[in-house]
């Protein structure tokens, strides 16, 4: 026979009935741990927000965890419109718009290419298609550093080095493995008979893709878009490597330059406002998409 302690513990098993007393020792421990950990996770966001709303004197006097005594939005305005990188003093807005100009075409092209790849790989396999896919997947694990310089040469040859277009192409290439995998697995889960029926009905490669498969795969498009938006927006390495002029830096690169510039007084409030601004796009996507975000990373991660 199990002793009573074991029994209580077993009773709180994940799918068992809810324990009758809400405040037994086990529960207090579970909730206590979770709440403390949650505070650790939430803290940086909180610090970012309160710091960005304080005046500089208040920051230098006080406690970074204390809420602002006097709320000011000036740091936000300054971060967006006036912060300096080098000689440019028009704020993060420049980087923001650069990132948007990089993001939109990258998104469209990479999702289009990946969905077609996934479709071809799952339904129209040809000799060698699995090999190319295998290489693509291995490529996702190789440190990007080893491919950086050859791509510089390729882009230079194509006259695209330093341009936004070049960076877009780089994002398309490096977003390809994960998104192709995502679409391939999704299309592979569609019953093969549906594909056969469409072929008997005389539909070819593109007709089946556009008429049958696309209307069925909206959720996976959303997942893919989420992965790409956060991935491309958060990129730093490619932005700093393939954009040659500070005018065209994406937001993350510009943010790093603003905050880590050694000149002048450190304006912590402006820095935090800028940081928060940069994080805002993925955060909004994250909080708005909820479960789909989780599904996206799980789909990308679990079957590697």
């Amino acid at each position: 026979m199990a002793d009573s302690g074991t029994m209580t513990a077993a009773m709180t098993g994940p799918r068992g009935p809810k324990p009758k007393r809400a405040f037994n020792r086990t529960n207090i421990m579970i909730y206590g741990t979770l709440i403390v950990v949650a505070l650790y996770y939430a803290l940086p966001l909180y610090v970012m927000i309160v710091t960005s709303l304080k005046g500089l004197p208040e920051i230098q006097m006080g406690n970074i965890f204390a809420p602002p005594m006097e709320i000011t939005f000036e740091p936000w305005v300054k971060a967006w419109a006036q912060a300096c990188t080098g000689i440019n003093c028009d704020g993060l807005s420049r980087g923001f718009w650069n990132s948007v100009r990089i993001l939109i075409p990258s998104l469209i092209i990479s999702v289009a290419v990946a969905s077609v790849n996934g479709y071809a790989l799952s339904m129209w396999k040809f000799k060698g298609s699995e090999v190319f896919f295998g290489i693509l997947m291995i490529g996702a694990f190789i440190p990007y550093q080893i491919m950086l310089y050859p791509i510089v040469i390729l882009l230079r040859e194509a006259g695209l080095y330093g341009s936004l277009t070049g960076l877009v192409l780089v994002h398309v290439a490096f977003g390809m493995p994960i998104n192709t995998l995502l679409f391939r697995n999704y299309f592979a889960s569609i019953p093969e008979e549906l594909f056969k029926a469409a072929r008997v009905d005389g539909a070819g490669f593109w007709a089946i893709f556009f008429r049958i498969m696309l209307p069925m795969s909206l959720p996976i498009f959303v997942v893919s878009l989420i992965i790409q938006v956060t991935g491309i927006w958060n990129d730093f390495l490619f932005g700093v490597t393939y954009i040659s002029s500070p005018d065209r830096y994406p937001m993350t690169v510009q943010l790093n330059n603003i905050v880590n510039s050694v000149q002048g007084v450190k304006e912590y409030n402006v820095n935090m406002a800028a940081t928060l601004l940069t994080g805002l796009v993925p955060l909004v996507i994250y909080f708005a998409s909820g479960k789909l975000f989780v599904r996206g990373i799980a789909a990308g991660a679990v079957k590697g």
């Binding site: 979770l34 950990v37 949650a38 996770y41 939430a42 803290l43 940086p44 966001l45 610090v47 970012m48 710091t51 920051i59 230098q60 970074i64 956060t230 927006w233 958060n234 990129d235 730093f236 993350t252 943010l255 790093n256 905050v259 912590y268 820095n271 935090m272 940081t275 940069t278 994080g279 993925p282 955060l283 996507i285 994250y286 909080f287 909820g290 975000f293 989780v294 990373i297």
Partner: peptide, 28 residues
Amino acid sequence: LRTIFLYPFALSFIVTGLVWQWILNPQL
């Protein structure tokens, strides 16, 4: 809770680095 544990993953490493640089600031 899951939302709180996962949101940092949505952020750029640059954002993460800068926030923690500030939190771990020795003077302030």
